[in-house]
Design a protein around this nucleic acid. Structure first.
Lengths: 326, 326
DNA sequence: TTGAAAGCGATACCAA
DNA sequence: TTGGTATCGCTTTCAA
């Protein structure tokens, strides 16, 4: 590959001069600049980013670590992050951690070794200490790691309350909840929101809650068990859209019609929620906005060379989208 | 960050020696090795990958360029590539090109500048020349760029024929096709397969084909138009699963029941195809296997330091999965 | 068996 | 306004 030396030779100047025109820094004579630019074009020279990174300890790259690329929520988020990052002049490295603590730590190491300028991460297991050790800006998205860290999340509890109350308003008498894994903070918050509304009802007890894994398979299983345990359930709040879709399938398997026999509401507002039959009523997160905000926040931290600031903990609002499943 | 110098100092040896134990190369005395390993552990030293890459002109990284991360097919593929790559000791950088020629070329440049060892790409617009210029191994996946290039694809035409014939066997008399964008090769092949079966039928003409974009929204539109043009259509072969799901929605909008009034079959076998109601009959590609095979092929090319070999053009088989939509 | 030093490709300081 | 050169952190020859 062509290096800066080749360009310098071709243009009859020193590498220092070439570097100056490349970076628009320092003084360069008008005609020298032209000569160099010509050489660059003629040789189709592209500066070597690795060498650059080595010197600068920066790589114009941001890392994005997500727990489950197969859940459409994260591709949508990734899309937003990528769009925004590119607009701001950064590339993104997307990493899939599987929610596995070891993999997360490994990616953190890898990204740091690659001199990424900053990281956006969605994790349940990472601690504030692990992140502070990195000494580069990190924005936590979709899950809070510590209130002191830059964070973009939504009103999970409030959204869950809206969802549950909405089912009540639709006439549901017995409302079950398909919960995400207890170790996932937002799953816990959503469950709390549900409890807030039905916790004091005379019929309520914990067997109205079934736990899944934020994926469809586990949700089908959980819903089947839940509905067999309580055939009188006429409303389900599922902790995310994928699980809500699973719940619909499970209901059908038991011969129940949605929404006639049982109303089902999800959480996330992934674009898939419009694709099902019946279309899913859901609590919509502003997914694109979350990715965009997180990226802008991260970049601003990077450019101010700081790892946090008091303004950087943001809780976005959610919206109830009524469709056919309720 | 801790560097090799710190380790050398701490262990009381030269950096060359540290490098030797790091890479298990050359001679290192037994006790020296122990000393160095102890120092590495004590300082929690991790070699700087950027510096390493600069010297080696390799980065133990492979690039993956996909056209649409929002189509679940690609996350599934990415997942397979990532799993396999990590197993073989490589990291992967995932890039989303939007099918845009400029973005693709840009990512190719970026990846090359990052010294990736190889690239897996799914593209309609890249040419063999552009790829050969890179001078690193590239595997084309899901779409063929040139028969001379390492490639993993499936029997698109055959699959399309299977799908169309299957609709016939289910008693469909008028079979329409929702086609992907004509500029996408596999969309063309799938359309050819369809034509192969119905092209000679007395009722057939080109108005039985409607073109979409491999996404749901365009497919709904296309299906609506198709069914208004030909209310007698009782079977639809959609060129991918997302479009098939769109077709189902469109059918419902027009008051047609699936599969009673109209049978619908897709192509891809994304896991979502099991999630819909009714579940989607589809031509399943071995997505995970494709990603795995592509990665293994790429790594073997990388390790043999070659950019192609005669064995590297692979066409995998597809399977018809009958579910509820037909 | 070990260490010194050159070099990977860029940047930025200091002199000229 | 330009050029020489140390430097980033690592690998690898060459000598010792």
């Amino acid at each position: 590959m062509i290096s800066i030396k080749d360009v310098a030779k071709h243009a009859g100047v020193s590498v220092a001069t070439v570097s100056r025109v490349l970076n628009n820094s320092g003084y360069v004579g008008q005609d020298t600049r032209v000569k160099v630019e010509k050489a660059i074009k003629e040789l189709n020279y592209k500066p070597n980013e690795v060498a650059r990174s080595l010197f600068k300890k920066q790589s114009s790259t941001i890392g994005l670590i997500v727990p489950d690329i197969m859940n459409p929520f994260f591709p949508e988020l990734a899309r937003a992050v990528e769009d925004t990052a590119i607009q701001l002049g950064y590339n993104v490295i997307l990493c899939n951690s599987d929610g596995d603590e070891k993999k997360e730590q490994n990616y953190l190491d890898v990204l740091q070794q690659q001199y990424v300028n900053g990281i956006i991460v969605s994790s349940n297991t990472l601690t504030a200490a692990q992140i502070e050790r990195l000494n580069i800006p990190v924005v936590s998205i979709d899950r809070v790691i510590s209130k002191g860290l830059p964070t973009i999340v939504v009103e999970n509890k409030k959204g869950a309350m809206m969802a549950t109350r909405f089912l009540q308003s639709k006439g549901c008498r017995r409302i079950g909840h398909i919960k995400g894994n207890s170790r996932v903070l937002n799953a816990k918050e959503r469950c709390e929101g549900y409890m807030e509304i039905v916790g004091e009802e005379p019929w309520f007890n914990e067997t109205y809650i079934a736990e899944g894994q934020y994926d469809m398979q586990s949700s089908i299983q959980a819903t089947l068990e839940l509905l067999q345990r309580h055939p009188d359930i006429d409303g389900i709040f599922a902790a995310n859209d994928i699980m809500a879709i699973g719940a619909i399938k499970a209901a059908y398997q038991l011969g129940k019609k949605v929404p006639e026999d049982i109303a089902i509401i999800g959480f996330d507002g992934i674009s898939l929620s419009k694709a099902t039959t019946p279309e899913l009523t859901t609590i919509e997160q502003p997914i694109y906005e979350m990715g965009e905000k997180a990226t802008k926040l991260l970049v601003s931290l990077m450019e101010q060379q700081q790892t946090a600031d008091p303004e950087s903990y943001k809780v976005l609002d959610v919206t109830l989208i009524e469709r056919e499943s309720t």
